[in-house]
Amino acid sequence: MVERTWRMLREGHPEARRGCPEVIEAAFAEPRLRRLYPFPSHGALFFHRNTDFPWSNDLPHIATGFSGYVVYAARSAEILGETATPEEAAAVVVAHLPDDCGPAVEGPWPESAPGPSI
């Protein structure tokens, strides 16, 4: 499911969610991010540890800004970095991933798993 979703995003498949192609490509180039479930929404690319709602919602994400890219902590709790390129933004996300992150599990996020479940 993760590989298929990345492929559909990168190919602009009509059934795929829409996101910034440059951010999608930069994130896909990072092996640790490529193992997570990508979820473009509201001008941002979110990463989840699972493939179906409810999402893990405990990982950083990349938002497209006015003059670059902004990396937010989970739930937009704080800004982790502002970058000029999507590649730099993807690197900031990777630097802030938990050690035990990935690959994404199929299905909803288990309630007993670490991290928020909503």
Score class of each variant (00 low, 15 high):
Glu87Ile: 01
Tyr72Ile: 13
Ala77Lys: 14
Ala113Asn: 04
Arg18Phe: 12
Ala16Cys: 04
Glu87Gly: 14
Pro98Ile: 01
Ala91Pro: 08
Ile79Asp: 08
Ala77Val: 08
Phe53Thr: 09
Asp100Glu: 08
Pro40Gly: 10
Thr64Leu: 14
Asp52Ile: 00
Pro21Val: 05
Phe47Gln: 03
Ala73Gln: 13
Trp109Cys: 10
Pro60Thr: 05
Arg7Asp: 11
Asp52Trp: 09
Trp55Tyr: 13
Leu36Asn: 01
Asn50Asp: 02
Asp99Tyr: 03
Trp55Leu: 08
Ala90Met: 06
Glu11Ala: 11
Val2Asp: 01
Trp109Tyr: 12
Arg17Leu: 14
Val2His: 02
Tyr37Ala: 03
Pro60Asn: 10
Gly102Asp: 00
Ala89Asp: 07
Val2Met: 06
Pro54Tyr: 10
Arg18Gly: 05
Val94Thr: 02
Phe53Ile: 13
Ala27Gly: 03
Phe66His: 11
Ala16Ser: 09
Ser117Gly: 10
Pro21Glu: 09
Leu80Lys: 02
Arg7Val: 01
Ser76Ala: 15
Asp100His: 08
Pro116Thr: 11
Glu82Pro: 04
Val71Met: 12
Arg7Tyr: 01
Arg32Asn: 01
Arg18Ile: 12
Ala44Glu: 15
Trp6Glu: 02
Glu111Asp: 12
Phe66Ala: 14
Glu106Ser: 04
Arg49Trp: 11
Asp58Lys: 11
Glu82His: 12
Val70Gln: 11
Pro103Arg: 00
Gly107Asp: 05
Val23Glu: 09
Ala63Ser: 15
Trp55Asn: 06
Val105His: 11
Ala26Arg: 02
Ile79Tyr: 11
Phe28Leu: 09
Tyr69Phe: 15
Ala90Pro: 08
Pro116His: 09
Gly12Ser: 05
Ala74Trp: 08
Ser112Gln: 09
Val105Gln: 09
Glu3Tyr: 00
Phe47Trp: 07
Gly115Gln: 03
Gly65Met: 06
Thr83Val: 08
Ser41Ala: 15
Gly12Ala: 06
Ala27Cys: 14
Pro38Cys: 05
Asn50Arg: 01
Phe46Ser: 13
Thr64Ala: 11
Thr83Phe: 05
Ala84Phe: 12
His13Thr: 00
Ser56His: 10
Leu45His: 10
Phe66Asn: 14
Val92His: 05
Leu59Val: 05
Ala95Cys: 02
Ala63Met: 15
Ala73Gly: 12
Ile118Ser: 15
Pro108Ser: 07
Pro21His: 06
Arg17Pro: 00
Leu33Glu: 03
Pro98Asp: 05
His96Phe: 11
Thr5Gly: 00
Ser41Thr: 11
Cys20Arg: 12
